[in-house]
Amino acid sequence: MKNPANKGLMTLILPTFLTLVAITVLPILITFGISLFYIKLTSAAGPVFIGLENYFELFTDDRFLNSLVVTVELIFIPVALQIVIGLLLAMILKEKLPGMGWMRIAFLLPAVIPPAVSGLVWKLFIVPGAGGLTYGASLFGMDLSLDLLSMPSSALAVVVATSVWVGTPFVALLMLSALESIGEEQYEAARIDGANWFQRHWYISVPEMLPVIVTVTVFRILEALAIFPIIFVLTGGGPAGSTEPINYYAYVNGFEYLRVDYAATIIFFFFVAMMGATAPFLINIARREGREARS
């Protein structure tokens, strides 16, 4: 605060930050607090303090352990596909080939459709025997009328496909804007050396874009479980828990079984794990943003 240029700035910043503390940090602390109690909403008896007992229950709860596995599947499979396909599409869009200009606008579509509607879009598309998928197969003379949501592995595949569908175009557009900021001369030199299109990108674009790729990957990981509405609409976590990630299981506990204490335990556990894994990256991003500003 000794720098005179800062004068008056804290009075602009502080009210917002105090409000944000009240509406974000406080609720997170309350969630942790709730997880330390035994609470039965349906009975008149008050909450009983039980320490970390809810956390011990997690590790003997098969359904929770299953949701951990599903969480890993639903984070890593879609994010890997989004990054790889997104990068490939960005490389293609950058060439500005005839007839591809409109795709940049079409790519905005899944990013603006409400997730619940995305779930419905896909549910409608795969209605057994009467959906668009069956129609598409019939164009190739195939008779496809399976109920994809009735089997664990295919239900998971549908959720993964929807997640890829929602996230990939957006990743592609982000990658594209990073790709377009790389100087043309580097590619020219590689072209003269006889590198083909793919090699040029592999040896020039990918190393140049590595910071962007890492940042996008971190954000996609953080966003991965935001497909909650899609799961809610498509599968409800089933069949047999095959599409029930950790945040969905927390929801089921809190709002179907009315076990808010256990729901708080599950989600707080996830919060700590997620923050532990990604906080260093996020702080790094903030540091870069802080430095980038003019001085």
Binding site: A5, I28, T31, A226, A250, A263, I267, M274, L282, I283
Partner: peptide
Amino acid sequence: SRLRSPAKIPLLSWVLLVRAAPGMIYVIP
């Protein structure tokens, strides 16, 4: 944006961290 102070980085980090928390953690409280 105008602040030139060591407090800037922690404040910026905090803005990002709050946004990155899973929505479900807010629902119960």
